[in-house]
Nucleic acid binder design. Structure first.
Length: 476
RNA sequence: GCAUGGGUGGCAGAGUAGCUAUGCAGCGGACUGCAAAUCCGCGGACCUGGGUGCAAAUCCCGGCCUGUGCUCCA
């Protein structure tokens, strides 16, 4: 089955064909680092991380670019409040971003361009748009003129210029002071008193929001590239603006072959947002659960669907994750990994997994297959079938680990097992002694005493389970 | 209002025409002094009204509900 992906512009799943055989250029709009990253950022980063992992494992050479908008009104305002340089605010949040992404097992992109390091390219692009008469300078900045290319309007949203002219329920009527038309958007904003600025042919100022992505994608991926991604809330106006800028500047279309957009995070059925107060930072979430449990939660729905996020979902994912990791760890400690292609069962689950991923990166289908292999592995562990244990472990290592990124590296899993074993042996004498007492109590049908000992052990962090062959214990 | 998605069992969430999705939860059973774990089994769904088909959750038309966008936003 060949890869098909949903293209926002065509509003349909399309067969994936790259501009250059075997190579993929992908640009994803990144964050504006004015505050610590939230789980929406995590959702997006993980979604595209998995997309890139899948493309690479499908044999493509991928060039994955995602940017930082390290100058904007909010950053400036926070910097002013704190009386620090605006880059201090941006850098501290970018550091936070990299730290949490690493915890979430998000592999680094190939480049992280920043607006403040792309100013010459942005200026050059604006100049070209002025020359081609798609843009004009005015009293407070340089604007893109929508009426210079009206046919490009609504390529992603399906709205026509006429429709929007009706007015968005009367709300979008305000025309920026220097704009000819209220739908024109800023390419360059002149600096007001006390704002950071760069020199330009039109005056001191800074780039508008949209032009950076056109400039950076051009710089890193060229005049045409395969995939442009971002959150679905960027479709309008940001990505439509990019289409105007890039296509008018480069004078060809389409610049982007496939537009893909991830869905938002919902809390109580509504989009997570600061104004609603239903806001989770990544650090909030990983203070409650392991980062990979959060990752599991965020790929439980296919990337285009909204993810319903709350404590229940999070706990649900935690238990799924623990099931996965404990079976995998146990298998890993029992045998070496061996190829799984000889197992009929694993071969067919692998096919299902691939079909799911090839169908617009359906991680939900992929997870179902992972769950079924976890179940299979547990069975094989019970049966002591080392061939199938080895094969299942390596199946999981590839599918759940390399592709979905849900497994820590093997060393740390083994480490953790060893630590637990060490902790276990440190207290085994005392535990065994107590268990012996408990067994005597049970033989005498002294249930009260037996339960006392069990809860005593429980307080020590030891879980006792009575099996037909006598009591089994483990550390919580 | 306009645009664009979606409405599947208690929850999450696959499935675009015919065959058990799956997981969690629930129920019943095995095993248990009890509990836990494990195993076996079970039930339960396709918003609504029409239409096309031998056959529709799946295609077509209408209605209702709902998310998102139209303003900074991943």
């Amino acid at each position: 089955m060949t890869l098909r992906l949903y293209d926002t512009r065509s509003r349909a799943k399309r067969k994936f064909r790259t501009l250059v055989e075997g190579e993929v250029g992908i640009y994803v709009c990144g964050i504006t680092p004015y505050s610590p990253s939230h789980i929406g950022h995590a959702r997006q980063a993980i979604a595209f991380d998995i997309i890139v992992r899948w493309l690479r494992n499908s044999g493509y050479k991928v060039n994955y670019i995602t940017n930082f908008t390290d100058i904007d009104d909010k950053i400036i305002s926070i910097a002013n409040d704190e009386k620090v340089h605006f880059l201090e605010v941006a850098n501290r949040n970018i550091d936070d971003y990299f730290e949490v992404m690493d915890l979430l097992n998000v592999l680094p992109a190939d480049a992280y361009p920043r607006v403040t390091e792309t100013i010459p390219e942005i200026i050059s692009m604006i100049s070209r748009l002025i020359v081609s008469e798609n843009a004009y300078a005015s009293s407070d900045g340089v604007y893109f003129e929508i009426n210079s290319a009206p046919e490009k309007y609504g390529q992603l949203t399906g709205q026509t210029l006429e429709m929007v002219q009706e007015g968005a329920g009367g709300r979008v009527t305000e025309t920026g002071s220097g704009k000819k038309n209220h739908r024109d958007f800023a390419l360059w904003k002149f600096a007001k008193e006390g704002e950071p600025y760069w020199d330009s042919p039109w005056g001191k100022g800074r780039p508008g929001w949209h032009i950076e992505c056109s400039a950076m994608s051009l710089e890193y991926l060229g005049e045409k590239f395969d995939i442009h991604g971002g959150g679905s809330d960027l479709i309008f106006p940001h990505h439509e603006a990019e289409i105007f800028q890039s296509e008018c500047c480069l004078n060809h279309e389409p610049v982007v072959q496939y537009w893909i957009h991830n869905g938002m995070i919902n809390v109580d059925g509504e989009k997570m947002s600061k104004s609603l107060g239903n806001f989770w930072t990544i650090r909030d979430a990983i203070s409650k659960v392991h980062p990979l449990e959060l990752r599991y939660c965020l790929i439980n729905a296919p990337y285009r669907q909204p993810v319903e996020f709350n404590d229940v979902m999070l706990e649900d994912s935690s238990s799924h994750y623990r099931r996965l990791i404990s079976a995998y760890g146990e298998g890993l400690s029992l045998c070496e990994k061996k190829p799984w292609e000889n197992s009929e069962f694993l071969k067919s689950t692998s096919t299902n997994f691939s079909n799911g991923m090839n169908d617009d990166f359906n991680t939900r289908v992929a997870i179902v297959e992972v769950q079924s292999v976890v179940k299979y592995l547990k069975e094989k562990i019970d049966e002591n079938n080392s061939e199938e244990i080895s094969a299942s472990v390596s199946w999981l290592s590839y599918h759940a680990g390399s592709i979905l990124g849900l497994l820590p590296n093997d060393e740390s899993i083994i480490d953790e097992i060893n630590q637990k074993n060490a902790a276990k042996s440190a207290i085994s004498d005392i535990v065994n002694d107590l268990l012996k007492q408990r067994t005597i109590a049970r033989d005498n049908k002294n249930w009260q005493r037996a339960d006392e000992i069990r809860s005593e052990l429980n307080e020590m962090g030891v879980i006792v389970e009575d099996s037909p062959d006598g009591p089994i214990w483990r550390i919580k």
